[in-house]
Amino acid sequence: MEKVMFEIYQHFDDQGLIDVTFKLSNPTALITAHRLILSATSPYFKQLFKSEKGICPLIEIRDIDSETFERLIMFCYTGKTLVTVENVDRMLKPALVLQVDDVLAQCVDFLFEHMNDYTLKRAYTLEREAQCALLSEKMLEYEIKNFTSVTESAEFLNFETAKLQTILESDDLNVTTEKCAFAAVQGWYEHGATVRKQALFRECM
């Protein structure tokens, strides 16, 4: 398999047997590839190449910067890519769109392994923008495990009632005392008492 993977990468490197070219505009770039390789690593590309748009030898890609797109294409050939604090946002969203699941998982894992450098506020912003199920799932796990530090963030005060309930009902909730948890919930409730009182009343009906 290592020999096969090496040969696949060599084809990309020397442009042999290329059968598709992608045109990107941010910045302008032409990136060539092999349909078979991309189809094998991404359901998005597999469906694209079966469509009328995918038949064309030159395919325009919008809303993804050329550097990130090339990184994802390279991953399809090598199984490797470089994720950093600076580029994880730019990598995660296109990986989600292009359904390169291994890169998506790598980005999510990297984010939580480097949360101190990445920051919780930035993670919540990315969660809202990306609408990524895997990221939301890992975010919930992080909130349960790091409940005390999460409650100190401004984002905590805007948690939906159902989300907070899920966290509090978890058997793995990490709090020093029930008193600390109660104080956090009380602060959350008082932040939007009128609206939350109505929401809790509806749920109890």
Score class of each variant (00 low, 15 high):
143 E>K: 15
59 I>T: 00
113 E>P: 01
103 V>N: 00
129 E>P: 02
150 V>K: 03
124 Y>D: 02
82 L>M: 13
146 N>K: 13
10 Q>N: 12
179 K>P: 01
73 I>Y: 04
87 N>F: 12
41 T>N: 07
56 C>G: 01
113 E>T: 04
205 M>F: 08
52 E>F: 05
140 L>T: 15
24 L>V: 08
87 N>V: 11
122 R>K: 12
36 L>V: 09
134 L>W: 14
44 Y>V: 04
185 V>T: 15
83 V>K: 04
153 S>H: 09
20 V>S: 02
154 A>Y: 08
112 F>I: 03
76 C>G: 04
192 G>F: 14
204 C>N: 05
84 T>K: 10
22 F>K: 03
37 I>Y: 03
137 E>N: 12
157 L>C: 06
35 R>S: 02
151 T>C: 12
159 F>V: 01
109 D>I: 02
110 F>G: 00
200 L>C: 04
190 E>P: 02
188 W>H: 00
52 E>I: 07
202 R>S: 04
48 L>R: 05
130 A>K: 08
181 A>W: 09
69 F>W: 06
171 D>E: 12
82 L>C: 10
66 S>H: 03
20 V>M: 03
81 T>I: 09
19 D>H: 08
139 M>D: 02
155 E>K: 07
13 D>F: 15
34 H>Y: 06
169 E>D: 10
196 R>Y: 12
90 R>C: 04
100 V>P: 00
151 T>Y: 09
10 Q>K: 14
171 D>I: 14
137 E>D: 12
126 L>T: 09
111 L>T: 06
47 Q>L: 07
134 L>E: 04
8 I>W: 07
10 Q>L: 09
81 T>V: 13
31 I>S: 00
197 K>A: 03
102 D>R: 09
133 A>L: 15
164 L>K: 04
118 Y>T: 11
22 F>C: 01
40 A>D: 03
192 G>Y: 14
173 L>Y: 13
166 T>H: 05
144 I>A: 01
91 M>W: 06
196 R>W: 15
149 S>C: 09
133 A>R: 15
61 I>G: 01
26 N>M: 07
110 F>N: 01
107 C>Y: 07
86 E>I: 14
32 T>L: 08
82 L>Y: 11
130 A>P: 02
42 S>D: 04
